[in-house]
Structure formats: C-alpha cells, structure tokens
Design a protein around this nucleic acid. Structure first.
Length: 269
DNA sequence: TTAAGTGTTGCTCT
DNA sequence: AAGAGCAACACTTA
C-alpha cells in the first residue's frame, strides 16, 4: 500500500498508540529487514526507551527515541504498521514487534521484505542520505519549488512525479491519479507543459494526496471512501473512466503499469 | 503454471 | 550526461 498518504496514516497510528509508552521488548522475527544492523543491537537501542515523537518524509516514517536517535521505517510495497494486543493476534508477516511495558504492541509487517527498519542518530542526515527531495505535502513545497522539482528535461510527467529525489512521496498509484485529475497523459514530457498545466499539476498533486489522507489511505475501506471521479478504483481489468466511461488504457513506463483514460488524457499535440 | 504487483537499487545502453 | 529499460529482492494471487 504505502505511498505518502498511506505512510501518513501509519504515522497517525504510531502517534495514537505508541507515543510516550515504554517499550519493554523488541522482537525481530526476520532480521533481513534490518539489513546489516544486528538484531541485538537494534533491540538494545530501543528496549527501555519511549517514542516521543514522529516525522514523515515522503514514504519514510521516523520515530524519535526519548534518549536520542530515531527508529527509521520504510515500507516498500507491502509494509504496514499495525497496533496489536498480545502475541495471539499478531498480524501475519510481522518482522519487528515493539511490546509496551503497560501492554499491547506495535507490529511492523512486510510480506515481500521490500522495505527497511533501522536506526539513525539524526533525522536530517538520514533523509539527506536517502537522497530524498522535498516532501510533496510540505507547505514550503510551493508552486515554484514544484516546477523546479519537475526539471526542464525530456522526461515524462509520470517518471518525474515518481522520482523521490525530485519530490518525495508519490508512487505509481497516486501518480496515475494525479495525472488523471490534471487530465494529462502519463508520457507527456515535462518540457511540453504550459504554465497553466504546470499549475494544474501542482494543485492536483497536493489535492489528490490530501484527499487520499482524508479518505483513510492505507486502510481496508480506502477505495470505497474516495470521492466519485477518482480513477484509482478503476485501476483494474475492464476499468471505466469515471468521467466519460471510456475503457481505461494501460501502458508501461519504467517497468510500472500506468492506468489512464485515453479520452480524457490525450497525448500531447 | 506464468505473470504481475502500491518500492528501490544498480547496471547497461543510448 | 540525463533518462529509459531491465533484473533483482520475496512472496502472493489472478
């Protein structure tokens, strides 16, 4: 699930269920998710500590430890963060579990293991090291910054939106939605945009991400909560454009499938 | 049985 | 040199 709106929901879960509670036990049930960090070292750094704050940047979530340092969470394609009770109701594919001294736990799950849990001393340094551009929902990421992030190049809008070094947070699904709402073909080149289209793309980038958060992205019922007129529920075989009823088209870009309406999102002139 | 998939990296080719 | 294409990672589902 996790693109920016999904990770924002995970942040809310962490804030509501885990903040300021002493972490008694850390269980790493699959150490591959820690990469080179020994599980014992990770547990030692976190056990006895509390999370005293959290920060989301793009698709990354960082939880601040009370005695300094941060736990870093990245979710890949199949990661999730789930509050749970005792071990009996631990969700499948739990890779790391934080058990609180006063009961209950927070589970980091990841079916495909595409993701990472780690430690860092400094959030800024970590994010810089990941090579991330500005968070797409940062208020400071304004129209001018957006235009700058897109660059002037010959690259397609879809790849520009998904480039985490340009702007952090947009992935394959929400890139499709943003382009649909802006009525732009995914293979349109950045250099082809008029000023007005750049403005529209900027506004839709913010609006789509904010709407997705408001609709509970990352939750089970998410698609059902979306307003009429979103293409996301139609990203499937036999999907229909919610605006004109045309059969949804697909194309491959960068090894990912783009879903779009061939009628509403005509290729450039 | 084969293929595709919400992410990222690293390598190759142009 | 920027950008596209592709395989790899691990695992499930259509």
């Amino acid at each position: 699930m996790p693109e920016l709106p999904d990770v924002e929901l995970y942040k809310h879960r962490l804030d509501e269920t885990a903040l300021h509670r002493t972490i008694a036990v850390v269980t790493v049930s699959d150490a591959r998710i820690l990469r080179d960090l020994p599980a014992a070292k990770f547990a030692e750094a976190v056990e006895g500590r509390r999370f005293e704050g959290s920060l989301r940047h793009g698709k990354h979530l960082l939880a601040k430890l009370d005695k300094g340092g941060w736990v870093t969470l990245h979710f890949g394609m199949t990661g999730d963060l789930v509050p749970c009770g005792e071990k009996s109701d631990e969700p499948p594919y739990t890779r790391v579990r934080f058990d609180f001294a006063d009961g209950g736990a927070l589970a980091y799950t990841n079916r495909r293991m595409l993701g990472h849990v780690g430690l860092t001393d400094d959030a800024e340094t970590f994010l810089r090291g990941e090579g991330l551009g500005p968070d797409a929902l940062d208020p400071a990421f304004d129209r001018a910054a957006f235009a700058q992030a897109l660059g002037s190049g010959r690259r397609s809008l879809k790849s520009a939106l998904m480039d985490q070094a340009a702007m952090a947070g947009v992935g394959n699904i929400f890139a499709d939605e943003i382009l649909f709402q802006a009525r732009l073909h995914p293979e349109t080149k950045v250099a082809q945009l008029t000023d007005k289209q750049t403005e529209t793309l900027f506004r839709q980038t913010k609006a789509v991400l904010e709407t997705a958060i408001a609709c509970g992205a990352g939750s089970e019922q998410f698609q059902g909560q979306l307003p009429q007129g979103f293409i996301i529920p139609q990203r499937k075989k036999d999907g229909r454009c919610p605006r004109c009823g045309t059969a949804i088209g697909t194309l491959k870009a960068g090894g990912r499938t783009a879903y779009f309406c061939p009628n509403c999102q005509k290729p450039k002139a």
